[in-house]
């Protein structure tokens, strides 16, 4: 017997600035395991996109292969989407956003898709600073192939059968920061309060925003000895710095500035408000961030929040000095001036 989620028009349902209800940002019913962290992240994405009043047709969702890469089917069914080859989501994303710079790009990947088969692509999309949210649903395990350790599994953690992981792990956030990413965050699927504002800030950020989200695999990695289980993550999670996105239209209240808070103003007029939970942490300095991460990693703690931000890294379009007009909006003659124009151009290069 299959089951469907009924659509019910309830009295008192709220709508956002463009008149859509939360349910309008949902997708098909998830076929992932019951209790999967990925579904929680999907719900956080739905919430964030709804709150930001993003038009569904303005959005493109892309993914590779894996449990995580099924996610784009589960939110905003009115958006564009591309489910690509294993580990090759960054290439597709780069192409899509090169062609239409007005799109809001969300790439959903997993620890296998980004840190194993797609590790090379991961580095280069960061380096190019493609304007997108690059979300890694990180569960430390290959769920689709029955629970082998993935590249993000911590050394010393055990599999469901009790086997101990011997290899060192690839730390997605440290890798991203050291590769020069302009926005790096980490969160937990079970902490919606932290995750939703972080997703909003990442979408608003004008560059490649990497979000590593610990997302427990209920079927293969939620046991004792796992370092990516619900219980372990809750016990060892450390909030270092929180982020709130304030839209350009919103009035900034004085209460936002309580405590150790400072604003990062974005080019579109909105503001990311950073609230330091730990005064020692400075998310605008790369070596401070990396040092802090390493200190706490060695204690077994999982540092979460907006870990690094740099507004001044140029994005792909600025680097390549591309036209401000999306290519898809350009006339064919202008986009493709013909062989005569090419010959003229080549003449000048001789």
């Amino acid at each position: 017997m299959t089951f469907a989620r009924p659509k019910i028009n309830l009295p008192g349902q709220k709508v956002n600035e463009i008149g859509l209800a939360l349910r309008d940002y949902e997708g098909s019913l998830s076929t992932l395991c019951a209790g999967c962290g990925h579904d929680s992240i999907t719900a956080a994405l739905v919430q964030a996109l709804w709150e930001m009043s993003i038009r569904p047709e303005q959005l493109i969702k892309m993914s590779g292969i894996g449990c995580s890469s099924k996610t784009p089917a589960y939110f905003v069914h009115g958006a564009h989407g591309f489910n690509s080859v294993h580990g090759r989501m960054p290439s597709v994303a780069t192409g899509a956003l090169a062609g239409n710079r007005d799109l809001v790009g969300i790439g959903v990947s997993g620890d296998g898709d980004s840190l194993s088969i797609g590790f090379g692509q991961f580095g280069h999309v960061i380096r190019r600073n493609v304007n997108m949210l690059y979300l890694i649903e990180n569960n430390g395990v290959y769920g689709l192939t029955k629970g082998q350790f993935s590249a993000s599994a911590d050394a010393g953690s055990t599999s469901k059968k009790g086997e101990v992981n011997q290899m060192q792990n690839i730390n997605a956030v440290a890798t991203a920061i050291s590769m020069g990413a302009s926005f790096v965050g980490r969160s937990f699927s079970g902490d919606r309060e932290q995750l939703v504002p972080l997703i909003k800030a990442a979408i608003a950020h004008p560059g490649c925003a990497v979000l590593d989200v610990v997302s427990p695999c209920v079927t293969f990695n939620d046991h004792e000895g796992s370092t990516k289980s619900y219980a372990y993550t809750r016990d060892h999670k450390l909030r270092a710095v929180e982020a709130d996105l304030i839209s350009p239209r919103a009035e900034i209240k004085a209460s936002y500035y309580a405590g150790d808070t400072h604003p990062v103003r974005l080019h579109d007029g909105s503001t990311i408000l950073l609230r330091k939970v730990d005064p020692d942490y400075d998310p605008t300095r790369r070596n401070n961030a990396l040092g802090y991460l390493e200190r706490h990693r060695s204690r077994g703690e999982i540092v979460t929040g907006l870990l690094y931000i740099d507004q001044n890294v140029t994005d792909m379009h600025s680097q390549s000095r591309t036209t401000a007009m999306p290519l898809k909006a350009m006339d064919y003659e202008r986009l493709n001036p013909g062989s005569e124009a090419l010959r003229e151009l080549q003449k000048g290069m001789k």
Binding site: R5, I8, L10, D39, S189, V218, A231
Partner: peptide
């Protein structure tokens, strides 16, 4: 309960 939020997200009436 392991607080995975699955029930919260699926509930059609929130």
């Amino acid at each position: 309960c392991i607080e995975c939020d699955a029930c919260l997200d699926i509930c059609p009436t929130q």
